[in-house]
Amino acid sequence: MSWNDFAVRLVLIVLIPLIGIFLGLLYKGFDRKITAMMQSRIGPPWRQPFRDVRKLFMKENIIPDNAVPWIFNGAPIAALVATLVALVYLPMGPFEPVMEGYGDLILVLYLLAIPAVAMAFGGLASGSPYATVGAQRELVLMMSYEFPLAIAAVTIAWKYSSFSLGVISSDPVWNNVGMMGGIGLALVLTTMIAVLPGELSKIPFDQAEAETELAGGILVEYSGRNLGIFYLAEVAKMVVVGTLMIALFFPHNISSWYSFGGPEFGGFILADVGADILFFLLKLLVIIFGAVSLIRVAFSRFQIDRASYFYWVPMTIIGLLGTFLVVLEGVI
């Protein structure tokens, strides 16, 4: 690694998490506005999440008397850091992952599990019965959706014989399968779409927070800065999960179909890069709209055992069936 290369990466590692948080807050504002419109409400302005974060960081940070302070304070930071680290291992738009070669899909999946675990520990350490119930639910839910998620990831990786996200996103997986494999991939995609609301703790899988049941559950004792950090982790996770889905299933770029031409910089055609970035943002928007906003307004909250059953039985079966079809086609 040359010094020049090192410097570029260093800058990007600082920059990308900031961009991720910004995009997350922007999309959260979009999600809230569009949800409100679908529910025939007016809704908050799109910049409300930015205001929320600003206000949360200004508020007093209360630590309950019977909490374990170092876990209670450490959990939000662990959640945010893990989410942001995952971002630099993900390909975004036309760019390869910044840390390509130093970590792959498996690392990303592990990093994605950390925020949920951190939230559960934070909940357990806050010493409130509501948070305890919420933490138990969060862990149950995590154990339920991790397997279907792993099925989706492994199926794609098997197709490329590689866990590297740079390799996977360089060529859309749909180009490499025939009819049967296509059906299999569609099934795996269904599983992935079903995992998204669970991964992001949105209705119908928001049992851990469940406002009307547990009054905020896992986050009931959190306030001020700690809650603000959790808020940032949540919005960044939305971007991470969306980007992961794009990298696995829809890494298409406009530049591969059409080139605008024009000035170049460092091997990139600027107009094409711009188009690709816009296309990437649009894809992210569609995924967040479909997997978060649309599902959020169309369902009620499941009971925890039903949610767990949903992931363990129907979704796992659909995912495994998809994998089987993809592998079968590859073998024949």
Binding site: Q39, I203, P204, A210, T212, V297, F299, S300, R301
Partner: peptide
């Protein structure tokens, strides 16, 4: 039951 859409409706 967490179905806010119908609450608003």
């Amino acid at each position: 039951i967490g179905f806010d859409t119908h609450l608003h409706f």
